[in-house]
Design a protein around this nucleic acid. Structure first.
Length: 275
DNA sequence: GGCTTATGCGCAG
DNA sequence: TGCGCCTAAGCCA
């Protein structure tokens, strides 16, 4: 379930399970045999996430770069390693447990310089300390592209995926088709602040819950628990179902090859009401 | 058992 | 804009 929170949680867990240890690295699937050999027997110094990218630093300037893509998983387990089940791209084994990587779209070993190059292409990540929201707003406020599309661009803002995109815009009553240049500055900083809270909650719980966190706008009330897709949401994948706030059928459309969900009533261009 | 879908993204054209 | 990657889960039969 890889949006940014998943990768940050993963980094945290990898540090907890392997941090500072010499690890064994193998590629049971054999698709990553050369890469695994580069990491085998090395010290796993630190895991870190930038947006949806995970980096695991080993000694000797070796940096594992993982991107889970749409259906990759990296599952950690304490205790004795089991016989690898399914297609395991990379297995890491330590003193206290092991981890299996499957289905990742990217799994490669980089140098520090190469890693810096990957990070340099990303926009600010709300989950990283010191992330600069204004850097994203510079791009957004200069663009004719819709805010819904801009939120998904990792070079504008790193870590947002289809669920957070839909939920964030709903929570703030922002029309997803509003051009970035028409999004008021104040609205953007509200979105950023809320997004950071939502994603931090996601890191803590491992789920995307957008209906019951502390920052839920009061007027929206508390919809029933659904837990349909690993979290409780207002509009994501609820096409045709009644909006929890106003009862209007949740709308859906394909935008830049991704499914977009929104409430046509709650998300009129309220953001431009200031004009 | 098969088919569809997916919280992503790079690439060809 | 559409395809392919490559995996698992959900749905149907």
């Amino acid at each position: 379930m890889p949006e940014g929170h998943t990768l940050h949680r993963l980094a945290r867990d990898l540090n907890g399970l392997f941090g500072g240890e010499i690890i064994r690295a193998t590629s049971p699937q054999a698709r990553f045999a050369e890469g695994a050999a580069l990491l085998d027997g090395r010290v796993l110094a630190k895991a870190d996430a930038y947006g949806k990218h995970l980096f695991v630093t080993f000694d000797a300037d070796r940096h594992l770069h993982v991107h889970l893509g749409l259906y990759g998983t990296f599952v950690l387990d304490a205790g004795e390693p089991s016989v690898p089940r399914g297609q395991v791209r990379l297995r890491i084994e330590g003193e206290r447990g092991y981890a299996d990587l499957r289905g990742a779209t990217t799994c490669e070993v980089l140098t520090r310089v190469e890693r810096v190059g990957v990070v340099a292409r990303l926009g600010p990540d709300p989950l990283r300390r010191g992330a600069d929201a204004s850097r994203a707003y510079e791009r957004i406020s200069a663009s004719r592209t819709t805010i819904a599309a801009l939120l998904m661009r990792q070079d504008v803002i790193a870590g947002v995926g289809n669920v957070y995109r839909a939920e964030l815009l709903f929570r703030h009553g922002v029309d997803p088709f509003l051009p970035g240049r028409e999004l008021p500055s104040a609205t953007w900083y509200d979105l950023w602040k809320d997004l950071r809270a939502l994603m931090r909650h996601g890191v803590r719980t491992g789920r995307i819950d957008t209906t019951r966190t502390a920052h839920t706008p009061r007027a929206m009330g508390r919809p029933p628990r659904q837990d349909r897709h690993g979290g409780d949401v207002y509009v994501y994948r609820r096409a045709g179902d009644p909006c929890y706030v106003c009862g209007t059928a949740v709308a859906t459309a394909v935008l830049e090859a991704r499914n977009l969900f929104w409430c046509p009533t709650c998300q009129r261009s309220r953001a431009t009401a200031a004009e």
